[in-house]
């Protein structure tokens, strides 16, 4: 009986792995490495990769710059409504991307909530590269903030108190104690958010459209090339798989890595600020 159960588990696991890996293997079997390279340097692929890289990079800077302070507050302070705020920040995680796109249009579109105000400023967001960035920030930032809140929350608050009694103002406490101690979690969250942003499709196509060289990111290009040049679509897909694998590897390596960094250089001089 016990044996039967174990065999059943093993078989199920085997099927599950096969199902998960088979499409990825097929992707790489479809194109030879040579064809892959030549497809990637084709005009549509180059354009799409450039758009993806640009928008992802800008979005990621925004996510880190805005998400880190938000996560620090949510992770280290107790206040009324904290749980509600965390839930609100995490909402885009469970939102269907298409809904995110529609919601962004409803907010920032020309006939949207802020449409008139943006119009007055002479700003039109939809169907621009800025819209791509906004879509990525909206969809991917929860992946970072969620991890970062947990990472900051795991930092022993006594250490933050100790830093204050040692003369460190809140900014220095953040930089010298909270940030290094949360670095592993922040790195993991950052990688996940980047991967999610790079793969963004639904919100982007609705809010930003799919204009080559402007808003057509790599995932959108895969969709667009599907009918025109299947090899280019597959090559882009393969490249995104490689990026995803790299991100996954980074996430699993980060915690081990941060343990050895951040303070290997010993300084004996007192720090400048008090």
């Amino acid at each position: 009986m016990k044996r039967l159960f174990e065999v059943a588990c093993a078989v199920t696991a085997g099927l599950a792995f096969a199902f998960l890996l088979l499409p990825l293997v097929a992707l790489f079997l479809r194109v030879s490495p040579g064809a892959l390279v030549s497809a990637l340097v084709s005009e549509p692929a180059r354009e799409a990769l450039l758009v993806s890289l640009e928008t992802s990079a800008i979005a990621h800077v925004i996510i880190l710059a805005a998400g880190t302070p938000v996560a620090y507050l949510l992770g280290t302070r107790d206040f009324r409504g904290r749980r509600a705020l965390i839930a609100a920040v995490e909402l885009p995680l469970v939102l269907p991307p298409a809904v995110a796109g529609i919601a962004l249009l409803a907010a920032f579109g020309s006939r949207g909530l802020l449409g008139d105000e943006l119009d007055l400023l002479g700003v039109s967001l939809p169907f621009t590269q800025a819209a791509v960035v906004l879509a990525i920030v909206f969809v991917a930032s929860p992946f970072y903030i969620r991890q970062a809140v947990a990472a900051f929350g795991a930092v022993d608050r006594t250490l933050l108190d100790a830093a204050r009694t040692l003369g460190a103002a809140p900014g220095r406490v953040f930089a010298r104690v909270a940030l290094p101690l949360a670095a592993g979690g922040l790195g993991a969250g950052s990688s996940l958010a980047f991967a999610r942003g790079l793969g963004e499709f639904g919100a982007t196509i609705i809010f930003a459209g799919s204009f080559p060289g402007e808003t057509r990111t790599a995932p959108l290009a895969i969709y667009a090339e599907l009918d025109r040049d299947f090899d280019v679509a597959v090559a882009l897909g393969a490249l995104l798989v490689l990026v995803s694998v790299a991100v996954l590897a980074a996430v699993s390596l980060l915690p081990a890595w941060t343990r050895f960094t951040s303070s290997s250089a010993t300084t004996f001089a007192p720090s400048a600020s008090t």
């Binding site: 022993d156 006594t158 250490l159 108190d161 100790a162 830093a163 009694t165 040692l166 003369g167 460190a168 010298r176 104690v177 290094p180 101690l181 951040s262 303070s263 010993t266 300084t267 004996f268 001089a269 007192p270 720090s271 008090t274």
Partner: peptide
């Protein structure tokens, strides 16, 4: 529980709020 900074060495811990070389 002493609240020493786990990511800093002994010297760096002592340096943290120091007014002069430690």
């Amino acid at each position: 529980d002493y609240a020493l900074f786990p990511h800093l060495s002994v010297a760096q811990n002592v340096c943290f709020g120091a007014q002069r070389p430690v």
